[in-house]
Simulated assay, not measured.
Amino acid sequence: MPPEAPAEFSRPLALGRVGPEGRTETLEATAAECAALARRLGIPAVDALRATLRLTQDPDGAVRAEGRLQAAVTQDCVVTLDPVPQRVDEVFALRFLPAGREPADGPDDLDEIATADDIADLGDAVAEQLALALDPYPRAPGAELPAEARDAASGAFAALAALSRKA
């Protein structure tokens, strides 16, 4: 297997460096990291990315990260393809697991990230949170679907509804 490509925004931290008192980490992406993140996310630009994380030890050996990420990004409008500048301001929480532990998948569980050799990549976790926070359907101000597209969509759904009523 080829070696894994390095993360575009990597900030490794050994879980053991989070003492009983916890620690706060502030991460800020460089211009080169922002450009690499934009390519990874398939958007025109990440102009700025900053995150502050409060890290605390959980009794089971995991490290809880509660943070806030702020970013300035540009996405393409889904209607016009014009650039749409946006601000992202998200609060998140997750857990970094000691090596060898599998993440839980319960609906009420925090997102859990497995680590290799008890090293958490805080930057990559923030990049993943940014990906989740992006608007899936960005629209430029005033952008609307053409009438033909709206009619075609409603027509298709109307046809499906008619078929289901016949069944």
Rank of each mutant, 00 (worst) to 15 (best):
I119Y: 04
P107E: 13
L49H: 01
G42R: 01
G16K: 14
A127K: 07
F9H: 04
T74E: 08
V78P: 02
L163P: 04
V73I: 11
S154D: 15
R64M: 09
A93W: 09
E8G: 10
T24H: 07
V63A: 02
A167N: 14
A48C: 00
A158I: 05
E8T: 07
V46P: 01
A152P: 03
E8Y: 03
E102A: 14
P59V: 07
D121Y: 04
E33L: 01
P12S: 04
T24K: 11
A131V: 03
A38C: 03
E102Y: 04
R17M: 14
A32P: 02
A14Q: 13
L97N: 05
A62N: 07
K166R: 15
A32V: 06
A38K: 00
A153W: 12
A152M: 09
F96A: 01
E102L: 09
A149V: 15
R64N: 11
E8L: 02
D117M: 06
A104Q: 15
A131T: 02
V91C: 12
S154N: 13
P3C: 08
S164Q: 15
M1E: 13
A159D: 13
R11E: 10
Q70T: 11
E112A: 09
D76A: 15
E28V: 12
L94Q: 07
A143I: 05
Y137K: 05
A7Y: 05
A116S: 13
G100V: 09
A152G: 08
A140T: 03
A65P: 00
A14R: 14
P98Y: 08
T115P: 06
I113Y: 10
D111A: 11
L55G: 03
R150M: 14
A158C: 09
L110M: 08
D89I: 01
V88L: 01
A29F: 00
A162L: 10
R50N: 11
D117I: 06
K166N: 12
V91G: 11
E144D: 12
S10W: 05
P59Q: 04
E128H: 10
A93V: 14
A7Q: 07
G106K: 04
G16R: 15
Q129S: 12
G67C: 02
D108F: 09
R23L: 14
A158N: 13
Q57C: 13
R95A: 13
L130S: 04
P3Q: 11
L122K: 02
A36G: 03
P44M: 02
R87T: 14
L13T: 05
G22T: 06
E112D: 03
D121M: 00
A36F: 00
D121P: 05
L97S: 05
A93H: 07
D105V: 10
C34V: 03
L134S: 02
E4F: 09
D47T: 10
Q57V: 12
M1N: 12
E28I: 07
Q70H: 10
K166P: 09
L37R: 01
R23Q: 13
A140K: 06
L55D: 05
E66N: 12
C34T: 00
L94H: 08
A36C: 02
G100A: 10
A116G: 12
L97V: 06
